[in-house]
């Protein structure tokens, strides 16, 4: 099986949220409540148990010369966020039930019939993607439309995207397409365009990667995500040191002081 990926190009996104709607329709994802956030056109605010695709509306100072903006106008960029389907996934490694698995397409998938809602994936995802549904009790996130992929179909969001901002396909092929796209944008003068894919971090790259403009952090895309499993060595070393101290402390304390009390009482 080929490893598939998402390449989301924010320079093509028009903020229509068709991906969000298609995802909800196909996957039967519950509503997010009816909240007017006042933050640009974004009323869902983040990925979560009821939002598996999320269109961000990034407002920032303009870069003159690209996109036809005048200096007095801010830029308005859109980007459809999604589970990153990490090469080394924190949620998958932390899941104690084996509910979270790597599919034959390389995606990260929560098996809903096994998840018992322990919530550990929530705090081990470097991107704040996985979330527990308080009504249902289980953890949910983008399934990479595992069911559709098994049937040879592309995920619902990519299918619905009217501008091909969301591309789905063979991961290696998409990475080539993305590099070409960046080169083309740079040649056209949009020099702040770049690919966000943390290949040099402990996450080891993501199967869903993004083309963004300017600082990726304004899209809440972290520059150096940390895979929690890399912290196991210092954590267990500290635990072993503490356990050793407790064991030796207890044995010595009773061996020395336990007997002294005994002798003292014998003398009296």
């Amino acid at each position: 099986m080929t490893t598939t990926g998402f390449f989301t190009d924010s320079t093509l996104c028009i903020g229509c949220k068709a991906c969000e709607v298609a995802c909800k329709e196909w996957n039967d994802v519950p509503h997010d409540g009816f909240l007017w956030s006042g933050l640009s056109y974004d009323n869902t605010l983040s990925l979560g148990h009821s939002t598996w695709r999320h269109v961000k509306f990034v407002e920032s100072a303009t870069t003159i010369g690209a996109g036809g903006n005048a200096a007095e106008h801010m830029t308005w960029q859109f980007s459809s966020d999604v589970c990153k389907h990490c090469e080394h996934a924190g949620c998958l490694e932390a899941c104690p039930t084996g509910s979270i698995i790597r599919t034959e397409f390389g995606g990260v998938y929560i098996q809903p019939d096994i998840c018992n809602g322990c919530g550990y994936c929530v705090v081990t995802c470097p991107f704040g993607v996985v979330d527990r549904n308080p009504d249902d009790g289980r953890a949910f996130k983008c399934t990479f439309c595992y069911d559709r992929q098994k049937a040879g179909e592309e995920p619902a969001c990519a299918k619905a995207c009217p501008t091909q901002s969301i591309l789905f396909g063979d991961l290696a092929e998409l990475e080539r397409v993305a590099d070409e796209r960046v080169a083309k944008l740079h040649a056209g003068g949009m020099t702040d365009a770049s690919i966000w894919n943390p290949k040099d971090s402990s996450v080891g790259g993501t199967h869903a990667f993004f083309l963004v403009r300017g600082d990726a952090r304004q899209y809440n895309l972290p520059s150096n995500p940390v895979l929690p499993t890399t912290l196991l060595k210092p954590a267990w070393s500290a635990a072993a040191a503490a356990a050793g101290a407790i064991a030796f402390g207890a044995v010595f304390a009773f061996a020395l002081l336990g007997r002294r009390t005994q002798n003292a009482e014998r003398r009296t």
Binding site: G90, A94, Y120, V123, T124, C125, P126, P225, V226, P228, T229, L231, L232, P234, A235, W236, A238, A239, A242, A243, I246
Partner: peptide, 12 residues
């Protein structure tokens, strides 16, 4: 008595 520290430490 010690692993709960690992449980919290090895997160994001």
């Amino acid at each position: 008595s010690t692993y709960t520290g690992v449980l919290l430490g090895a997160t994001t």
